[in-house]
Structures are given as structure tokens and as C-alpha cells.
């Protein structure tokens, strides 16, 4: 039986109540919208990429605790990181959500010896979401939106 505590970890509730990196960024930061039509979740992501580094990230929007906490955790984990590390983090997250096959060559987020180890570990608080399959789309909204923002030509 899936336990509610697996879903609503303290870290998640903390990020839901006090979301990090809320707000907007002016151009030339990229602005991308993400929607979850089934639940009405909306996210507007602002991403400032310079010289291959995700210099800054901010967001507005509304949604459930899982989508809000996931976007907040994501922003803390990717802010200030080189793009290749950002992409690796996205991949790790999607693997954790069961959306990617885990590959041996890929490090798990907690194996990463990058400086921002703490925020990487915090993302693992979302691991319990996979026990609640209908909520996976809540957790992935921010990450798909970020992927979309990075895919846009600058």
C-alpha cells in the first residue's frame, strides 16, 4: 500500500509552502509556458542561459503541491549549473520517475559529486511520487517545460 508520507515528504511540503525562485526574468531570458490540461496546472518558466550556463531561473503559475514543489526543487538544483549538467539532472529525474530506462553509464543524482549535492539529494524526495502513478505528470510538468525552454533557439 502506497503511504501518504512517501508522497508528502517534509522537503516537498517545505518547497510547496515556500517555493524558491518565484518571479519573472526580463528578456533576453527565455519565457516558456507549461500546462497540465487535466489538472489545470499552469507554469511560466523564465530561463537565462549565457555561455552554456543556466545563469538564472524563475517561475510563476499555480498547481498542486507536487507540481509546485517539483518546480521549486528543480530550480534550486539547476540554477547556476552548466547546461550539460542541467541535461544530466533532467535525465536523472526522468529516470527516477520511471520515464527513462536507467543506464549504467549514467550516475544517479546522489552519486554526483558536484558542488550542489544538497539540492540534488532534495530532488530524491520526489522519488515517492512513482508510487502514485497519476501524480507523475504533476511532478514532470516543470522538467518538461525546462527541457522545452532549453530546446528553444536562443
Amino acid at each position: 500500500m502506497a503511504n501518504l508520507d512517501d508522497l508528502y515528504r517534509d522537503i516537498i511540503l517545505d518547497h510547496y509552502r515556500s517555493p524558491r525562485n518565484r518571479g519573472e526574468l526580463p528578456p533576453p531570458a527565455r519565457r516558456v509556458e507549461g500546462f497540465n490540461p487535466l489538472c489545470g496546472d499552469e507554469l511560466v518558466l523564465y530561463v537565462d542561459v549565457r555561455d552554456g550556463v543556466l545563469v538564472d531561473i524563475k517561475m510563476t503559475g499555480h498547481g498542486c503541491s507536487i507540481s509546485q514543489a517539483s518546480s521549486s526543487l528543480m530550480s534550486a538544483a539547476v540554477k547556476g549549473r552548466p547546461l550539460d549538467e542541467v541535461h544530466a539532472t533532467i535525465e536523472s529525474f526522468k529516470t527516477m520517475m520511471g520515464l527513462r530506462e536507467a543506464s549504467l553509464s549514467e550516475g544517479r543524482p546522489d552519486d554526483d559529486d558536484a558542488s550542489d549535492l544538497r539540492s540534488m539529494k532534495e530532488i530524491n524526495a520526489l522519488a515517492g511520487v512513482v508510487k502514485f502513478p497519476v501524480r507523475i505528470k504533476c511532478a514532470t510538468l516543470a522538467w518538461n517545460t525546462l527541457e522545452q525552454a532549453l530546446a528553444e533557439p536562443s
Binding site: L4, Y8, L38, G63, I66
Partner: peptide, 21 residues
């Protein structure tokens, strides 16, 4: 509390309500 979270917590107690538009 977002309606999805309401419904999720309620499900834990066997209560079936619908979140959404």
C-alpha cells in the same frame, strides 16, 4: 490545499472525491 492534494489525502481514508475543473 490544492484540490488534487485534497483528493489524494482523502483517498488515503477511503473517501472518493473528484478534483479538477
Amino acid at each position: 490545499v490544492h484540490p488534487h492534494d485534497v483528493a489524494q489525502v482523502l483517498d488515503q481514508y477511503g473517501v472518493c472525491v473528484r478534483p479538477g475543473h
